[in-house]
């Protein structure tokens, strides 16, 4: 018997789905596939694929270099496809302490270089609060960002979920 572990990618994914067998409806389950979402997204667009009140998981198509982002709280980044470097700067200008979600930084933020992490599929990185970060994809990738709903969070449930 094969025990090969099955991962997926934008080029190789098969969606499951919701079968209704009682008094219910499929949209309640907000069923989507991250690779399908990334296939149809703009690079570095942060599409909300899971929401739990104010908290989000955002899916991004990782392609080329992202803008610089900064966030007043921790976030995390899980690489589901591709090889991605994340560079960090201790930004001199911080977002409001009570703000939620990532914000875009115009240009390269002023501040000291904190270092970088080099990630592959399955790797997960902490995006520390108030550290500006830029993701650099070495090939087409997909990342999941654990965050809080903010100005860059894109919600389009009707187009990504099973009806």
């Amino acid at each position: 018997m094969s025990t090969a572990t099955r991962f997926a990618s934008t080029d190789d994914y098969v969606k499951g789905g919701v079968e209704i067998i009682g008094a219910d409806s499929a949209p309640r389950y907000l069923f989507s596939n991250m690779f399908e979402v990334a296939s149809k997204a703009q690079a570095w667009e942060r599409v909300v694929v899971a929401r739990n009140l104010e908290f989000t998981i955002e899916c991004a198509r990782a392609e080329g270099e992202s803008p610089w982002f900064i966030c007043a709280h921790d976030e995390t980044c899980l690489v589901m496809q591709g090889d991605i470097d994340i560079h960090f700067i201790a930004a001199e200008t911080r977002p409001a302490a009570d703000s939620n979600g990532a914000q875009r930084v115009a240009g390269v933020p002023a501040g000291a270089n904190m270092g970088h992490v080099r990630l592959a599929r399955g790797h997960m990185a902490l995006l520390p609060a108030n550290a500006a970060y830029q993701m650099r994809a070495r090939q087409l990738g997909v990342v999941l960002l654990q965050s809080i709903e903010g100005p860059l969070s894109v919600q389009r449930w009707a187009s990504i979920c099973q009806h």
């Binding site: 994914y13 989507s32 694929v49």
Partner: peptide, 11 residues
């Protein structure tokens, strides 16, 4: 109510 099959990448 339902049966939900989830494959790699599904949410």
């Amino acid at each position: 109510r339902a049966m939900i099959t989830m494959k790699a990448g599904d949410i």
